[in-house]
Design a protein around this nucleic acid. Sequence first.
DNA 1: TCAACTCAGATTGTCGACAATTTGTTGACA
DNA 2: TGTCAACAAATTGTCGACAATCTGAGTTGA
Lengths: 204, 204
Amino acid sequence: MAPAQIARDVIDRLESGEFAPGQRLVEADLCLRYGAGRQIIREALQHLNAQGIVALEPNRGAHIVHVSREDAIMTLELTELLFGLVSRSAARRIAAGADDSRLRAAIQELVQASQHEDRALYMRARRHLFAALSHIAGNAELSRIMDQVRVHAMRAQFGFADFRRGHAQELAEIGRTVIAGECASAEERARNYVRCISESLQQF
Amino acid sequence: MAPAQIARDVIDRLESGEFAPGQRLVEADLCLRYGAGRQIIREALQHLNAQGIVALEPNRGAHIVHVSREDAIMTLELTELLFGLVSRSAARRIAAGADDSRLRAAIQELVQASQHEDRALYMRARRHLFAALSHIAGNAELSRIMDQVRVHAMRAQFGFADFRRGHAQELAEIGRTVIAGECASAEERARNYVRCISESLQQF
DNA sequence: TCAACTCAGATTGTCGACAATTTGTTGACA
DNA sequence: TGTCAACAAATTGTCGACAATCTGAGTTGA
């Protein structure tokens, strides 16, 4: 199993609640779990560290970082900005003739997923939509940062709230606005979408 | 020498022109250069890879990524958003009573540095100012992303243009606005500052 | 009782060696 | 001459072993 896959799996387990914040990740344990050498595990841990998901203290190993309430709020602010930027950029590129097939496919997948009550399915479809937008926006740097922030937004219960409030329609609509190439509108809708979820989260 | 330091040094050499985009980074060479084992070098390379500075192809090694004109423009857009967010957040925290000593020190350092004609000195002072703002904003995630984007902004010649246009005064003024706790004003000034430099860059 | 010390156990950090992969070159053959 | 297989060189990928460091339990002495 490759380091990136292991990192991905750790994130999944974190989102599913199998790994808890503060929990230590001991290299030897992970070696057994994934049947990999320590080298591999170390690379995976560094990958996670670079994303800010685990903290790596010298000679003391790795542990999953806590997410405070304030962290969550700021992550959502960040998400609002970035999702807005990505949507606007993607719309601009499509208006300039970029390929939109991947985005169309992602929208369809999302609509289908929203008809079932399967959270995992919905989450994956949503991830694909974001990936398609990042891809069309066409900037590797932005894509990377979006990826990182998305994981943190998930940890702030963003995805859960989104699923419960049934925002799939709005998300699909944002995708269609991007396809239509309406930059300003796409950005505004995207930001508003994040803001709604953010507010519903802050009610707790 | 620790992996993080090596990564930092590579970035410095990249900014100084000693390393060029597209250049391959062979592990054995770096081992000799830094007198470190391959393990260490590998970690440094992964660190750089996580920041999007080098690309890491399986079995084919690492090379420094190119920055296209479009990449640069989008990075500057991203910088504008993030610098605005950081400034606003920091101002809000200071208005709520957070410690501003580090920011004051950074401003003073910047003012002093701007009186000499030393680019390296100015760059460092500027980095400290950004670090102080990120620190006061108080979100580790945001700090990390700011760091990453700042390096990319540098590669887009941002720092160079800043130095040449003598924007130190404006930067210091932004810092003072943050200390005054004026959220909206701080954000607007910060974004405007990035926009100015971005425009002067796009004239080429 | 409690602070300081010692020492085993657990864990991470680093090195050297070898396996796997890619790349460039040589030479045979149509 | 051009193509292709085989080989050699360079480079990266992975493993095992040992060194360095941290943690906590037990011990000693005031």
